[in-house]
Design a protein around this nucleic acid. Structure first.
Length: 302
DNA sequence: GTCCATGTTCTTTA
DNA sequence: CTAAAGAACATGGA
């Protein structure tokens, strides 16, 4: 579901509503969707969020990589990571008196918000729900002062070209693997890596370290152009993705290679090819995205 | 039943 | 030692 543009679209759809809201109540049907301090899953203990969130006010909201970050009035932060099928939904039309509302399947968390600090002025009550069928998503509570950015690489939209080139030079891995590595550069996923490599006419197996300064600069400019265009189109909806108002994205119609196996490349009409790389399906045009120079073919598997 | 899926972490292998 | 590859997580749709 969520790469950088989709997560940004969720944040954009939440921004008019959340800041300034007070959390009236929290109902959590699974403890193990939430954890304290880290995204690691090994503890698997789970965390009850209600005591930490109730009566707090949301002061601000932003995106970091593929995470949605809520800041609370006590300077604690709440991270939402959507995984593959996670969905944050605002339901402003939800009747506040309907306590018998059957929770949809896979709704693991409902946060009841009030747009006014006092719960007695019952004017604007809105529920924020987190649902996630596959449960790859996570909610992480970070207490005030807790370090937030552990292990995440820089944001692609604000990364200077020279820094991007340095990052790529440090990795002998295929471009596809390197660009998916969130500790190297944070926010890209399978769709936008495939689309960006096609736009830059680079083979996904080409080693990151072999890019010239001109090639890496071109690649970064395509990454940024595609991310911005997708944000403007509210992201890509392949199947499940919806923003917090349940609206799908529109950028999937602009995809050139992703999920288009066998369809002619828009540039050269060669059928798009699909291979598996870094355990992910990888779509590319064998004509436009050839190795060309600096081909180190001897490093092919035994 | 099989295969596949917008993601990430942990374990095993090289 | 590092880095790559594989497995695992959980559910649903084609």
């Amino acid at each position: 579901m969520p790469e950088l543009p989709e997560v940004q679209s969720v944040v954009d759809s939440l921004l008019p509503h959340l800041p300034g809201c007070t959390i009236l109540s929290v109902s959590q049907s699974r403890l193990d969707i939430a954890s304290h301090g880290a995204f690691t899953r090994s503890p698997a203990t789970g965390l009850p969020l209600a005591p930490l969130l109730t009566s707090r006010t949301i002061t601000s909201l932003h995106r970091r990589a593929k995470r949605i970050v809520l800041t609370l009035d006590n300077h604690a932060t709440l991270y939402f990571h959507l995984g593959m099928t996670g969905h944050l939904a605002l339901n402003s039309s939800h009747p506040p008196d309907q306590q018998s509302h059957p929770s949809l399947p896979h709704t693991h968390l409902t946060v009841i918000l009030s747009s006014t600090p006092s719960p007695h002025l019952t004017s604007n009550i809105l529920p924020l729900t987190f649902s996630d069928p596959r449960r790859f998503g996570k909610v992480v509570y970070l207490p005030p002062g807790h370090p937030t950015d552990l292990g995440l690489g820089p944001e692609p939209l604000t990364l200077p070209p020279a820094d991007f080139h340095t990052l790529l030079r440090s990795s002998k891995r295929p471009l596809k693997s390197a660009l998916l590595d969130q500790s190297l550069i944070a926010g890209l996923g399978n769709i936008y890596v495939d689309e960006s490599l096609h736009a830059a006419r680079l083979h996904p197996r080409k080693r990151a370290t072999t890019l010239t300064r001109a090639q890496s600069s071109l690649l970064l400019s395509h990454i940024q152009r595609i991310l911005l265009a997708s944000i403007a189109a509210n992201g890509s909806t392949l199947r499940d993705y919806r923003n917090a108002n349940n609206q799908p994205g529109n950028f999937q119609s602009s995809h050139q290679v992703y999920n288009r196996t066998g369809i002619p490349c828009p540039t050269c009409q060669t059928p798009i090819q699909k291979i598996t790389l870094a355990q992910r399906s990888t779509h590319f045009c064998p004509q436009c995205q050839s190795y060309r120079k600096t081909q180190n073919q001897h490093s092919r598997r035994t």
